[in-house]
Design a protein around this nucleic acid. Sequence first.
DNA 1: CTGTATCCAGCAAGATACTG
DNA 2: CAGTATCTTGCTGGATACAG
Lengths: 129, 129
Amino acid sequence: MPNNSKFELEAKYFQDMPVYWLVRQLADRWSLPVIAELCRGTQRFLELKRALEPVSKRMLTLTLRRLMAAGFVERHMQDTNPPQVSYALSPLGHSLGEALKSLNAWTKLHHATFAAALKRDQRASDQDL
Amino acid sequence: MPNNSKFELEAKYFQDMPVYWLVRQLADRWSLPVIAELCRGTQRFLELKRALEPVSKRMLTLTLRRLMAAGFVERHMQDTNPPQVSYALSPLGHSLGEALKSLNAWTKLHHATFAAALKRDQRASDQDL
DNA sequence: CTGTATCCAGCAAGATACTG
DNA sequence: CAGTATCTTGCTGGATACAG
C-alpha cells in the first residue's frame, strides 16, 4: 500500500523549516523553469510548452497541477472551440518569484564557486564515458 | 552508458538561473537537515547522525560529500585511534545558511497557505489507505 | 568511530499513443 | 488546442553487511 506523500516521515522539518518543504516542492525538473516563464506574463498552454522546449505535454501538465495545488499558479479557461487555457502566477506566485530572485542574486555572488562545482560534476560524468 | 550528471540537458538554466542548480543541489532528503544542524556548530560524524535520526551512515556520508563538493561544508580529521572526524560549515556554507534563513522567513509569512497545501497532500495520501 | 560495498524497492520523468 | 493513459527506465535513498 504505497503512500503518495514523499513527506510522510519528514513532518518534523515542517515546523521549524518550511523552507525544506518549499525547496523539495520546487526541485523537480520543470517547476522553476515554469515559474520563470510565467514571471514574464500570462501564457497559454502551448506557448509555455514551446518556451520550455523540450518539455512534454505530460510533464508540463503535471508541473502546472502541482504549482496550482501549492497556490503559486492560477488557471483560466474559456470554453471555446478550440479550447483556450491560460496560466498565470497568483499573487503568492509573484511573491515567490521575488523571493527566488533574491536567492538567485545570492547565488550569483558566489557564481565562481558554483561554476567550479558544476565543472567537477560534469568532468566526473565525462569519466564515465 | 549512463551519465552521472543529472544536469546534462539543463545547462541553459545555469546562466540566468543559478538558483535552479542550487535548489536541485539542496533538495535531496538530507542536505537541508545537515546544513541546519551544522548551523548550530561543528559536530562529529556520530553527533550528526544522532541529531538527524533516522539517517543512515551511508546517506549521511553521501550528503556530506556532496555538500563538501559544493563548497558548503569542511571536513577536519585527527588521525587518532579511534579516528575523530568533525564537520563544519565553510564561510560559504554560513552565508548559504543566512540566505536560507531569509527564504525561510518568506515561507513562514505564507505558512497558512503552505499548511493547507500540505494538508491536501497528506489527505490525498490518506485516501490511498 | 567513521566509514564502504552491495542489493533492492519506489518514484520521477521521458516516449508514445490516444481523446474531447 | 489542451490535455490523459500507458509503458519504461534511471536514479534516489533505505537496509544490511563488512572494514580500517
